[in-house]
Amino acid sequence: MNSFTSINDKPLLDVKNLSCHFDVSKPWLNRVIEGEPQRFLTAVDQVSFSINRGETFALVGESGSGKSTIAKLIVDLIHPSSGEILFDGQSLKNTRGEAFKTLRRRIQMIFQDPFASLNPRWRVGDIIAEPIHAFGLAKSQNDVRRTVEELLDKVGLAGRDRHKYPHEFSGGQRQRIAIARALSAQPDFLVCDEPTSALDVSVQAQILNLMRDLQDEFGLTYLFISHDLSVVKHMADRIGVLYLGSMVENSPSDQLFIQPAHPYTRMLLDAIPDHEMSGRRRKQVTGEIPSPIDPPSGCTFHPRCEFADEKCKQKRPSIHEDQGSLVSCWASEEKRIPTTPKDSQ
């Protein structure tokens, strides 16, 4: 099996052939009576990538692409069906005791919905202090208080805000609190699952800028998950494009937008509204994402792909390298896609 591997030989996070299936069968009795087989949904299908220290790697995809499942797999909220996740050379699966606790502490997550990610009954100070207590990172109550206040200051809130409850804050401010909580575990890797998609654009800009600043200050590595390509372009060094649980392309950010290699990436770029009215040349987008329970054979994108042929319908594409991009597409490998330089830039 070919895999997406980084050029750098010591990545911070190394994901190898990660797969995750969910059992979506009807209850056992119904299956027996109706004579139906068990059904599985392949949420993540043999995904491999690696992220270097200090880098921002983005996963983009539409609904059902498996991007949020990958986030949960990496932070160990759910367990993979197969494949391996190595963090700093260690696997969460095979680590126990103190070492496991340390690994847990080093990987933290920022969630999508700032209204659901903070316990409404807790004061902000207690919310931010939870990881400090859980990982034993402070010697005294005074220590805890000082750390909480410093963190609030770092994310642009006031130290005395620790006495308030989440409902007293706006969405953007809540996301700042969630970031402060993640940072209080002193992580070096942050999984950000659509951190700004619940926020208004002007607030989104504040949060994205803050995340950049914090990355520089703490030397953080980000896995940034989003459906919004313009946000991803702003944040990421490398981008992985997901379609129905498979990674179809993994390219450096700049290259992906200038020379998308996979036909799906091209389609995604064509679908982004031109909010700047730059007159970007775009093609009409057609079709919708098929159900992940019963995905198309071969390359799952073939029903919507203008370059698909018989081979695409039957055989799952392997991964090949093309000018720094890792692409999973027969048409691209066989050079059947005409290179149209994006002259509109």
Binding site: K72, V75, D76, L77, K101, R104, I107, Q108, M109, F111, Q112, D113, A116, S117, L118, N119, P120, R121, E130, P131, A134, F135, A178, R181, A185
Partner: peptide, 24 residues
Amino acid sequence: EYVQAARLFGVSSFRILARHILPN
């Protein structure tokens, strides 16, 4: 997500039930 966050910190099931879910 606040329960998922607590799980990320390795908070025990008992504590999650007592301190996070019960009040809500």
